[in-house]
């Protein structure tokens, strides 16, 4: 049960964002730009960053939602599974491995990021913008993961929920649905 009173029909992050709509708008917009805006990293690659950080923070809600989004964007499920459990052998570019390594360091703490990890990423061709956005996305998910679990919002057990949510964040993105969420209330 959540630590505070949240709408029953909105598990996970959505109920929290509806609880506090004033703070939700700018962070939704920030997330939309970072994960869906123009970037030399693909949307799928950016979802992998969100997923690996959520996975290491053991946030089941965020891991499941962003795994679903990454799988949809990549068109297969193997890459995301490998990234979570065996990054060294995952079928992603060497550059992406170095960026995901930085993301894993950010998950531990900002100070865990080493100059060597940055140098490795640059040696594999990562740009300053890519390194910046990797760190910022990884840090952002350290926020979301703590927000979701720190208030014990509901984590649905049904996999079809995450399929639906993954489709929503792929097809609509991270901004609030224009019609709100009342249509999700069970009659």
């Amino acid at each position: 049960m959540p630590h505070i009173s949240l709408p029953d029909h909105l598990p996970g992050i959505t109920g929290l964002l509806e609880f506090s709509q004033d703070t939700a708008t700018p962070i939704r917009d920030l997330t939309q730009i970072l994960l869906r805006g123009e970037s030399s990293l693909t949307q799928g690659e950016r979802e992998l960053i969100a997923t690996i950080v959520s996975h290491n923070n053991e946030c089941i809600f965020c891991t499941s939602a962003h795994t679903a989004a990454a799988d949809l964007l990549l068109g297969e499920t193997e890459t995301c599974e490998m990234v979570k459990h065996d990054l060294d052998n995952a079928p992603v570019s060497e550059k992406m491995k170095t960026l995901l390594t930085i993301a894993k360091m950010v998950q531990k703490s900002g100070k865990s990021v080493t100059p060597e990890a940055i140098a490795n990423a640059k040696a594999q061709g990562a740009t300053d913008m890519e390194i910046h956005d990797t760190v910022l996305i990884a840090a952002l998910f350290c926020l979301y993961n703590r927000y979701v679990d720190g208030l014990a919002s509901v984590t649905p057990a049904d996999p079809s929920f995450y399929q639906y949510l993954g489709e929503r964040i792929v097809n609509h993105g991270y901004t609030r649905l224009p019609q709100g969420y009342d249509h999700l209330k069970k009659s």
């Binding site: 900002g110 990021v113 100059p115 760190v135 840090a139 926020l143 703590r146 927000y147």
Partner: peptide, 14 residues
């Protein structure tokens, strides 16, 4: 949670 974000952003960028 937000300070866990900003702290990581600042220190993660050195």
């Amino acid at each position: 949670a937000t300070f866990c974000f900003f702290n990581r952003y600042i220190d993660g960028m050195g």
